[in-house]
Computed example of a mutant assay.
Amino acid sequence: MRRVVFNQKGGVGKSSITCNLAAISAFEGYRTLLLDLDAHANATRYLTGLGGDDAPLGIADFFKQTLFPGPASIKSHIHIHETPFNNLHLISASSELEALQSKLETRCKIHKLGKLLDSLDEDYERIYIDTPPGLNFYSICALIAADRCLIPFDCDSFSREALYAVLREIEEIKGDHNVRLEVEGIVVNQYQVRNALPHRLLDELLDENMPILPVYLMSSVKMRESHQACKPLIYLAPHHKLSRQFEELFDLLEEHA
């Protein structure tokens, strides 16, 4: 099962959600792979503490190989790294992705990622894909390669407008490239229970029959501590309320996996 976390708007918690769900998946015993497609490499840094020039070889190297293919198999061109967490492996991102993007677009390489993941399906029971903000080459590749999509939503008016655009784009990609792609739901993130605006926005979206998932992830300084420690919450603070919310969300998604 391949799950992509996508929203065009930045700052909605894509990397945090992807990493924490993947960490819980691995903690629960699933052979889990996280693929980082964002040139900012936030997920890579979160899980390894490495980033920038220190980032390990990963998906950028694979895409370079697709531009200059050799005789070896697709699978042999990918660098997969162990993380400090059992059952959780990583295909890292780096800033190189930005420079490669225009070349990949002009050479119509949008299906290469799906072929790579096809070759890895027997090795991993769960694959999580973190995407860049915006509908660019890499996020399109991810949506074409995935089975399911989660959309983070952080309860402001700009996020609401972005949400409508994301749903339209997913429908278009589903129709043109990937009929199996399904929106699993909208993940409410950084939820502030005492703020009136989130309540009003969510009530309006629910009235519109938007697929809001019934687990709301709270806003907490513990997430920033988790980033700084390079430890997902299930390892840093397993009994914290936010950790339990992530577990509840994971269980809800697994019911339909």
Rank of each mutant, 00 (worst) to 15 (best):
K241V: 15
Q245N: 08
T32E: 09
E255W: 00
L181Y: 03
D38I: 08
S102C: 05
G29S: 09
E255H: 00
L217S: 06
H199P: 01
L120R: 00
L35H: 06
L242W: 10
C141A: 15
P56C: 06
G70Q: 12
Y235F: 15
V221L: 10
S220P: 03
Y216N: 05
I129S: 08
C108S: 14
Q228P: 03
R148G: 08
T32C: 08
G58H: 03
A145M: 04
V183I: 15
S25D: 08
H239V: 10
V5G: 06
N195E: 12
A72M: 06
L201H: 02
F137Q: 00
A162R: 00
C141V: 06
C155R: 02
S25Q: 09
D38W: 03
G175N: 14
L150R: 06
Q65V: 11
I170T: 04
D121C: 12
R224G: 03
P84Q: 02
L21Y: 11
F246R: 07
G134A: 05
S102W: 09
L201V: 06
Q228L: 14
E169M: 13
D251K: 13
N209F: 10
E98Q: 12
R244A: 08
A257K: 11
E122L: 13
F158L: 15
T18R: 09
S92V: 04
A146G: 07
L34A: 11
H89A: 06
A145Q: 05
Q8W: 04
L88N: 10
Q8V: 03
R45E: 09
L33Y: 08
